[in-house]
């Protein structure tokens, strides 16, 4: 039967042995990790972004690399998912983007700070994470019936980066605002233009914020939306 001194030897020996392996693997990992995290892309901007990320405890609600809290979205691939344009609009006034929904603290970041945060998140998204977060493997394809009602020409870049977060077309997109299928047959081009210029002025209390669109972008959007019949 096992004696106490044998048990002690098992504890001390095992601990030393596995600590040594752990230190060895750590040493090896430190050699590998620079390439996997693209150290050459870790600019001063990215470092400042991390500083902002840490000092405001963003991990207290969000996760990155799957680490943090579970109250707000996973942000590892957020730049790929939302685009830089959308994130910078969102960060200026987080509550305007999802009115009446779960709230984020209004941090009043400067444009430069927003750029830093986005640079940090962009860098995070490029790390080789062994496949995390995974692509949904049970995702349903949008139905053909809905697709048929959509425009045939490709949507403007701005639409795909920003509008899509709240509105859907052809079954893809957000559900905060109404689906835009057929909006071109419900509203005329001047009506669409007036709406996009300042939604709260047209309909006080609307959930849609004034996005301060440049004239060219607004014209492009109106043109494309009018084609959704």
């Amino acid at each position: 039967m096992l004696s106490k001194s044998q048990a002690r030897l098992f504890f001390i020996g095992g601990t030393c042995f596995f600590s040594a392996i752990f230190l060895g693997l750590t040493f090896h990992t430190l050699g590998q990790v620079d390439a996997r995290q693209n150290l050459d892309l870790l600019t001063a901007e990215v470092a400042r972004g991390k500083e902002i990320w840490d000092s405001n405890n963003c991990m207290g609600c969000h996760t990155i690399l799957g680490e943090g809290a579970y109250y707000a979205p996973e942000l590892t691939q957020v730049v790929k998912r939302r685009g830089k344009e959308w994130i910078s609009i969102f960060l200026r006034d987080p509550q305007a983007m999802f009115p009446g929904k779960r709230r984020m603290v209004q941090y009043d970041f400067s444009d430069e700070q927003i750029g830093d945060v986005i640079a940090f998140l962009d860098w995070i998204g490029k790390i080789d994470t062994n496949g995390f977060p995974p692509e949904p493997d049970l995702a349903m394809a949008p139905s053909l019936v809905v697709q048929a009602s959509a425009q045939t020409s490709a949507p403007p870049a701005y639409f795909q980066q920003v509008c899509i977060a709240c509105h859907s077309v052809g079954g893809t997109g957000g559900s905060v605002g109404p689906a835009l299928d057929g909006v071109g047959s419900r509203l005329t081009a001047p009506e669409l233009d007036r709406w996009l210029a300042d939604p709260p002025a047209v309909k006080p209390g609307t959930a849609m914020p004034n996005l301060n669109l440049p004239d060219a972008t607004r014209a492009e959007l109106v043109n494309w939306l009018s084609g959704l019949r």
Partner: peptide
Amino acid sequence: YVIVGFTFLSGILGTGHHYYYIGTPE
């Protein structure tokens, strides 16, 4: 001793379950 022996036998390298997806090797 036996129990804490098992703790370290599994727990030290078990740290690896936090190193799946943070940019560390496969």
